[in-house]
Amino acid sequence: MTPETAAYVSDGLGALGQTVEIASDGRAGLLRASDPQFDCLVIDRLLPGFDGLTVVRTLRSTGVRTPIIFLTAVGGVADRVQGLKAGADDYLVKPFELEELAARVEALRRRPPLPESQTLLRAVDIELDRLERTARRAGQALDLTGSEFRLLEVLMLNAGHAVTRSMLLQTAFGLDHANPATIIEPHISRLRAKLERDGLPDPVRTLRGAGYCIDAA
């Protein structure tokens, strides 16, 4: 949405007691939306960087279950169906009334919280709490940076399956880089060093030509 529309929505929902954060484009939005602190996400279909459909599909593919509303001028029946199938919970077409948007946001916020199976991840002897943003291995807390936590989160959401470097770059960093290895490999190395402390075996496997994998619990 345009900066003017974003400001209008932010000011309007803020006046109704909501705390609102604005992302300037699809990449920034994807990165911030991965944080489980948000009660609801309002996303436009037409965004610079990653488009809205890509943002929603990526969030859902990585296990983010935060309620999502598409707020967009793309309003054909086929467009609505496409947006809902991508993983959105609601679809509001511009022009819109702020009161209706606020009501829809409130309705989604009243939904029951995620079950533990979606917020508490386990793989091998690692436990990751997506709400508290903490991780432990063999019962000992791991001191992870934000990027290391996001990498581990994506690997654990896909435990037992290969995760490509491109997918890690997109879902953990919100980036689309010509050579993802230059960004991902140093971060993976630092994550592995922290996971291997006290002589524990490396839980992250490198799959030649495919990416990385962490075994399921």
Rank of each mutant, 00 (worst) to 15 (best):
R197A: 11
L142K: 03
L144P: 02
Y91A: 09
A216T: 08
Q118S: 15
E97L: 15
L191W: 01
D39W: 10
L114S: 15
R136F: 14
F173T: 12
L41D: 10
D25P: 00
R133F: 04
R208N: 14
D89G: 01
G17A: 02
G14M: 04
R190C: 15
A123T: 11
E4M: 14
D143K: 02
L53F: 15
G26L: 08
R137D: 01
S166T: 11
N158E: 14
G211E: 02
G75Y: 08
R150N: 10
G29M: 09
T145D: 12
I68V: 08
G209S: 14
G209D: 09
L46T: 15
H177R: 00
L108Q: 00
L41Q: 13
P180Y: 14
L84A: 09
D35K: 06
F149G: 01
R130K: 09
Q118Y: 12
T206N: 13
A73C: 04
I68E: 04
G14Q: 04
A138M: 07
F70T: 02
L120I: 14
L191I: 05
R110L: 14
M156G: 04
P203D: 05
A181H: 03
L207T: 05
Q37K: 13
Y212A: 11
L207N: 12
H161W: 08
D39L: 06
